[in-house]
C-alpha cells in the first residue's frame, strides 16, 4: 500500500467519524422531552407572568363579542430552584375589564396536579366570593371557543403521546387521552415548532375521526427571552365561529407574591400588578 492510499483510507475514516459525530449532535429529543418542553413553553415560561388579553369571539353568524382581562400567573416552585424547570402547581388571577357587565369581576384558579383545581369567582356588585366546582374543565371559558383547560393547561399525564413525524419545522405529536370517556375528543394532533417548542397548531378529532376544533398560534414574539404566542385563534370547525386572543404588555418574572392569589385580593384587587 502506498502512502497516497494510506492517506486516503485515514481521511475516509476521519470523514466518516465526523459525519457520525454531526449526526449524533443533531439527534432528536425523545417524545417525553418534546412533550415536557412544549408544556413548559405553553404554560410555564418564567416563574410568573402578566398579560393584558383581548378576546374577540365571533359566532357562526359573524357576530362578535369582546372580553378584555388581565391575567396574572405564578408557578409554585421549590424556593431553592435556580433554573425554572419545575412544571408543577400554578395560580392564576384573571381580572376582567370588559365587557362592562363583567367589569371588576375576578376569576381565580389554584391549579393542582394531583387533584381537582380550586376555582373562585368574585362578583363585585355583591362583594361575593364564590367557590365554583372544579367540575368539567372542558367547558367554554367566558363564552369563548377556548375551554377552561386551554387557559390553565391540560395535564400531560392525562394523555399518551406519540411522535408521528418530524418535519423541517415541526414535531408532529398525536395525543390520546388515557380516559377517553372524560373528554369530548378521541385524540389531538399538535404541530410543535422544533426550535422553540411553541405549539403552532393543535387539531382535535372526535370519536368519528372528524376534525372539529383547531387551535393556531398566529403570532409569536420573543419577550424577555421567551418565545411568546401573542396572537392565537381557536376555531370551531363544525359549527363555524372562532375566538381570537391577543396578548399585550406581556411581562415575565415580575415577582408576583403568592399572597395575592387569595380571597383578600379578590375583594381588593392587587392594582400594582394590574396596571
Amino acid at each position: 500500500m502506498n502512502a497516497v492510499a494510506k492517506t486516503w483510507i485515514m481521511l475516509t475514516v476521519l470523514a466518516a467519524l465526523a459525519l457520525v459525530a454531526t449526526h449524533a449532535r443533531a439527534a432528536e429529543p425523545d417524545v417525553k422531552t418534546i412533550v415536557e418542553n412544549t408544556n413548559r413553553v405553553a404554560y410555564y415560561q418564567g416563574r410568573d407572568g402578566r398579560a393584558l388579553v383581548k378576546m374577540t369571539i365571533t359566532d357562526s353568524q359573524g357576530r362578535t363579542r369582546t372580553r378584555e382581562f388581565i391575567i396574572l400567573r405564578r408557578d409554585d416552585q421549590p424556593p431553592d430552584e435556580k433554573d425554572d424547570t419545575t412544571c408543577g402547581e400554578q395560580k392564576f388571577y384573571i381580572y376582567f375589564r370588559r365587557p362592562a357587565d363583567l367589569n371588576k369581576m375576578v376569576f381565580m384558579v389554584h391549579k393542582h396536579l394531583d387533584r381537582d383545581d380550586d376555582r373562585w369567582l368574585y362578583l363585585p356588585a355583591l362583594d361575593l366570593v364564590k367557590p365554583i366546582a372544579a367540575g368539567d374543565k372542558r367547558t367554554s371559558f367566558v363564552g369563548s371557543h377556548f375551554l377552561y383547560e386551554d387557559v390553565s393547561g391540560r395535564r400531560i399525564t392525562d394523555d399518551t403521546h406519540e411522535l408521528v413525524e418530524t418535519t423541517e419545522n415541526y414535531y408532529v405529536l398525536k395525543n390520546t387521552p388515557k380516559k377517553a370517556d372524560t373528554v369530548e375528543f378521541a385524540h389531538f394532533t399538535m404541530w410543535v415548532h422544533r426550535k422553540t417548542f411553541v405549539p403552532v397548531r393543535t387539531v382535535y378529532y372526535d370519536k368519528k375521526g372528524e376534525m372539529y376544533r383547531t387551535y393556531e398560534a398566529l403570532k409569536v414574539e420573543t419577550i424577555d427571552g421567551y418565545p411568546t404566542v401573542t396572537k392565537s385563534r381557536m376555531t370551531d370547525n363544525v359549527m363555524g365561529g372562532h375566538t381570537v386572543l391577543e396578548y399585550q404588555d406581556v411581562t415575565y418574572n415580575i415577582g408576583l407574591p403568592e399572597g395575592i392569589f387569595a380571597e383578600r385580593y379578590l375583594r381588593s384587587a392587587p392594582r400594582k400588578y394590574l396596571k
Partner: peptide
C-alpha cells in the same frame, strides 16, 4: 403531508426583530 402542516406563524422562523 405538507398541506396538513401549518405554515409558521409570524414571529417563528424569521429573524428576531426589535420589539
Amino acid at each position: 403531508r405538507k398541506a396538513a402542516e401549518p405554515t409558521l406563524p409570524e414571529g417563528l422562523g424569521d429573524p428576531p426583530r426589535p420589539p
